[in-house]
Design a protein around this nucleic acid. Structure first.
Ligand code: SF4
Ligand code: SF4
Lengths: 161, 161
DNA sequence: TTATTTTAGGACAGAATCAGTCCTATTTAA
DNA sequence: TTAAATAGGACTGATTCTGTCCTAAAATAA
């Protein structure tokens, strides 16, 4: 019962994109840049962003000067969307999966409970947008900010060049 | 993001134990009986019940006439307890795991969000006791009851002998 | 005591999923 | 035309899941 690394890297990557274009226009960021900034394996991240692009959460721009941009504003993207774009739809119960082969199917109390439990989870992830997430992050960064592991502005500059 | 078969079988097994001793005293049920009733691989279920026993949710009785009994009343056992006894503590984030090796650790907004999301899930599973679950099941059985896949009373008698 | 019945525990194995890597297109800008 | 970027597929090693099997230990019944 854990989120996969792919899912986590994906959210991290999206956060980077969102935080990158502060203020104004949305600019593309290359996989290489995101990968270094978030300390995540580059080719793995590339695969993950393919999923995000297919799901319509980011737009990919090929060729020199290309990269990825958010396809929508951070307020319009929920964390659940991101995770499900990468890991596939969240379903606790096997019976709600592609291949329902359970003998209990039909009248199973567990099924209802799991649905409810899953709801408790997805509610939180649906209510939280990418924007909420970066605001949380900013709050963390500013309060007990410097030297606290998180990338400082100078480091950020070094990465962005 | 799915419950494992082991976890599900475990809850199913516990439900069987709880439903078995209606009214009065708690009686032991053998693995073989539970396995047949819930249509779950026997030796796999045996392993699962070992976990439940170690967690103190059931008591095991060895030797002829032995088997497993609930160690507490169904109202005192939560579904989360059952699942965690089998799958281990639920932790969405790697950093809260045994081996925290994430570079973002320390000031990570994701960490807080996942904790919250996980809370949404575990809340439901903590509030629901084994007793609640079998009541749900009974409600399902009686409403659109007969022939509906779920074990009928005659089948039950056949199993219990 | 001895045989029988039950769980305990460990070792093992096949399948599936995870966590990547790598290589070859394809697209685009310069 | 060349260089820079993503797209997509194939592939791989590690880990976890889903079991099975065997031997030991405990308890009962004869
Ligand atoms: S046991 Fe119930 S919840 Fe699980 S797969 Fe079967 S029908 Fe669905
Ligand atoms: S990215 Fe954040 S939530 Fe995930 S393991 Fe690292 S610190 Fe924990």
């Amino acid at each position: 019962m854990q989120i996969t690394r792919a899912g986590e890297y994906g959210v991290l990557g999206m956060m980077y994109l969102a935080r990158r274009d502060d203020g104004a226009a949305r600019k593309t960021a290359m996989i290489d840049e995101v990968s270094r900034a978030e300390k995540v394996p580059k080719s793995f991240l590339a695969k993950i962003f393919q999923n995000l692009a297919r799901a319509g959460l980011v737009k990919s721009v090929r060729g020199a000067g290309g990269g990825f941009v958010l396809a929508k504003t951070p307020t319009e993207i929920t964390v659940l969307e991101i995770v499900e774009a990468i890991e596939g739809k969240i379903t606790f119960q096997r019976c709600k999966q592609d291949k329902p082969d359970c003998k209990h199917i039909g009248g199973c109390a567990l099924c209802g409970l799991f649905e409810q439990a899953q709801g408790g989870l997805t509610d939180v992830l649906t209510r939280t947008t990418l924007d909420d997430l970066i605001k949380r992050q900013e709050r963390i960064d500013t309060t007990h900010d410097h030297s606290a592991g998180r990338l400082s502005n100078s480091q950020k500059d070094a990465i962005v060049r």
